[in-house]
Simulated assay, not measured.
Amino acid sequence: MTVKAILELKGHDVVTLGPNEKLSEAIKVLAEKRIGAIVITNGDRKIVGILSERDIVRAIAQAGSMALEHSVRDAMTAKVKICNAHHTVNEVMEIMTTGRFRHLPVEQNGMLDGIISIGDVVKRRIEDVEREASDIRAYIATA
């Protein structure tokens, strides 16, 4: 299964914020949307960073409650790993495992096209394994 297939099922919607928003606003959006990361764009869907719960924890650990008044730019991860529609689930799992992160923006032609979470990847991988097991059982039953 590819990233393209996952996005066809889940959609291409991504929660984004600008880099000049306050960290307190980003936290409110994360809580309201019940998500773990926000892709940071300049309004043109060009990815300039990603802000995860871990980034927020680090910012608060360094600056205390004053961090809430800082801009997202101060806390975000600017060097964002991305994937594209042609990556496989196994390739995305490798990228996430190696980088130790749970969200991977999907880019197409230099612009944000979606986001894949570790939950999306695990769900699809489990479906693949279940389908393979079912195929094997069916093959054995007919042999």
Results as ranks from 00 to 15, higher is better:
Val3His: 10
Val3Phe: 11
Ala5Leu: 15
Glu8Gln: 14
Gly11Met: 10
Asp13Ser: 14
Val14Leu: 13
Val14Thr: 09
Val15Ile: 08
Pro19Gln: 01
Pro19Cys: 11
Asn20Gly: 13
Asn20Trp: 13
Lys22Glu: 10
Lys22Tyr: 08
Leu23Tyr: 05
Ser24Trp: 08
Glu25Asn: 13
Ala26Asn: 04
Lys28Cys: 12
Val29Leu: 14
Leu30Thr: 01
Lys33Gly: 04
Arg34Phe: 03
Arg34Glu: 01
Ile35Gly: 06
Ala37Met: 04
Ala37Val: 11
Val39Arg: 02
Thr41Pro: 04
Asp44Tyr: 11
Lys46Met: 02
Ile47Leu: 05
Ser52Val: 03
Asp55Val: 03
Ala59Glu: 04
Ile60Asn: 02
Ile60His: 02
Ala61Lys: 06
Ala67Glu: 06
Glu69Val: 08
His70Tyr: 09
Ser71Met: 07
Arg73Cys: 00
Arg73Leu: 02
Ala75Leu: 02
Ala75Ser: 10
Ala78Leu: 00
Ala78Cys: 02
Lys79Ala: 06
Lys79Leu: 01
Cys83Ile: 06
His87Ile: 10
Thr88Leu: 11
Val89Thr: 08
Met93Glu: 14
Glu94Ala: 15
Met96Trp: 08
Thr97Lys: 15
Gly99Asn: 15
Phe101Asn: 00
Arg102Asn: 05
Glu107Arg: 04
Gln108Asp: 10
Leu112His: 07
Leu112Asn: 09
Asp113His: 11
Gly114Ile: 09
Ile115Pro: 12
Ile116Cys: 04
Ser117Ile: 01
Ile118Asn: 00
Arg124Val: 08
Arg124Ser: 10
Val129Asn: 06
Glu130Ala: 02
Arg131Lys: 05
Glu132His: 07
Ala133Tyr: 07
Ala133Ser: 06
Asp135Gln: 13
Ile140Lys: 12
Ile140Ser: 05
Ala141Trp: 04
Ala141Asn: 12
Ala143Arg: 15
Ala143Val: 09
